[in-house]
Lab assay of single mutants.
Amino acid sequence: SYYEILDVPRSASADDIKKAYRRKALQWHPDKNPDNKEFAEKKFKEVAEAYEVLSDKHKREIYDR
């Protein structure tokens, strides 16, 4: 789930989600993982997609249904 990707509970606040996104984006940024760039790019995209949905109140409500 998007919550698992960002490592936050379903009850996470918008601020918690933003902090988790920043932490995970740094962790999986391809430039930070030169030895495993392809895998890092995949993870980085997953993190971005999760944040896009969970950071938008309307999209998150739909996702949580």
Score class of each variant (00 low, 15 high):
D16N: 04
D64H: 02
K32C: 14
A48Q: 15
K43C: 09
Y51N: 03
R60P: 02
D7N: 10
V8Q: 03
A25E: 11
W28K: 01
K19C: 12
K42R: 12
N36P: 03
Y63A: 03
Y63C: 03
S55K: 09
E46S: 05
D31L: 11
E4M: 09
D64L: 02
R22M: 15
V47T: 04
S55G: 15
A20C: 04
E4D: 13
L54A: 00
R10K: 13
Q27E: 13
D35N: 14
R60D: 02
F44L: 14
D15V: 08
S11N: 15
A14G: 09
N33V: 05
K18D: 15
R65G: 11
N33D: 05
A12S: 06
P30I: 05
K42W: 08
F44Q: 06
V47I: 15
Q27P: 02
D35G: 13
Y21D: 01
A14C: 10
A20N: 03
I5L: 10
K59V: 04
K19R: 14
P9I: 06
Y21F: 13
D15M: 11
R22E: 15
D16I: 06
K45Q: 13
Y63G: 03
Y63D: 03
V8D: 00
R23E: 15
D7H: 06
D56E: 06
F39A: 15
V47R: 01
P34K: 12
Y3F: 02
R10G: 07
K24L: 15
Y21W: 09
A48H: 13
I5S: 05
P30C: 05
E41D: 10
K45W: 11
D15Y: 05
L26W: 10
E52H: 10
I5R: 05
K45H: 11
Q27I: 10
L54Q: 00
H29D: 15
S11F: 13
I17R: 00
A14V: 13
R10N: 13
R10F: 11
D64Q: 02
V53L: 04
K19Y: 07
I62W: 10
P30A: 07
A12N: 01
V47W: 02
R22L: 15
H58P: 05
D31Q: 08
F44H: 06
W28I: 03
D35R: 11
V47K: 00
V53I: 13
K57E: 15
S1A: 08
K24S: 05
K57Q: 13
K42Q: 13
H29F: 07
S13M: 05
V8R: 01
K45A: 14
Y63S: 03
A25T: 12
A14H: 12
D56K: 04
R10C: 13
A50W: 01
H29Q: 10
K42L: 13
V8W: 00
S55L: 06
K45G: 06
W28R: 01
V53K: 03
R10M: 13
D31N: 09
R10I: 13
K24R: 06
R22A: 15
A48M: 15
Y3V: 00
N33P: 04
A50R: 00
V8E: 01
D15C: 10
V53T: 11
D7Q: 10
P30Q: 06
E46C: 09
L26V: 08
E61V: 06
I17Q: 00
R22T: 14
A40N: 04
F44W: 13
K43F: 08
R60Q: 04
D64M: 02
E38W: 09
Y51I: 02
R60V: 02
Y2K: 02
S55R: 10
R60F: 02
E61F: 07
R22I: 15
K42Y: 09
D15A: 12
S55I: 11
I17V: 07
P9M: 07
V47P: 00
N33S: 06
S1H: 10
E52T: 07
V8N: 00
P30W: 04
Y2D: 00
Y2A: 04
E46V: 04
F39S: 06
H29M: 07
H29L: 11
K59C: 09
A20L: 02
A12G: 05
V8P: 00
D16E: 15
E4Q: 12
K32W: 12
K57P: 15
K37W: 07
K18P: 00
D16F: 06
Y3K: 00
E41W: 09
E49H: 10
Y51G: 03
R60C: 03
R22P: 03
D64W: 01
E38L: 11
V8T: 03
D16V: 07
I62H: 13
F44N: 04
E4W: 08
R60K: 11
K18G: 09
A25F: 15
K45L: 12
A48C: 14
D15G: 10
L26Y: 10
A48W: 14
K57R: 13
E41R: 10
L54W: 01
A50M: 01
S1Y: 11
I17W: 00
Y51W: 09
A50N: 01
A14E: 13
L26A: 15
L54Y: 00
W28N: 03
K43Q: 07
D15N: 09
F39K: 08
S55Q: 07
I5Q: 04
H58Y: 13
Q27H: 09
L6W: 00
P9T: 07
A14W: 07
D16G: 04
E4I: 08
N36G: 06
K57Y: 10
V53M: 05
E38F: 08
A48D: 08
K59R: 14
K42G: 08
R65F: 08
A40C: 08
D31T: 10
W28D: 02
E49W: 08
K37E: 11
K18E: 15
E41P: 02
P34R: 11
A14Q: 14
D7W: 04
D35V: 10
A20K: 02
K45S: 11
Q27W: 06
D31E: 12
K18L: 14
D15K: 12
Y51L: 03
A14D: 14
E4V: 10
R23K: 15
K19V: 12
A20Q: 05
L54V: 02
D64R: 01
K32G: 11
F44M: 15
V8F: 00
L26D: 15
Y3H: 02
N33C: 07
S13I: 04
K37M: 12
Y63N: 02
D31H: 07
D31C: 10
V8S: 02
L26K: 13
R23D: 15
Y21V: 04
Y51P: 01
E38V: 10
S1N: 14
E61D: 14
D35Y: 09
R10A: 09
L54G: 01
D7P: 01
S1T: 14
Y51S: 02
E4S: 09
K59E: 05
D7G: 15
A40L: 06
I17K: 01
N36H: 09
D16M: 12
K24W: 06
Q27A: 07
Y2P: 04
D16A: 11
R60T: 02
P30Y: 04
N36T: 08
A14M: 15
R65K: 14
L26F: 09
H58S: 13
Y63F: 05
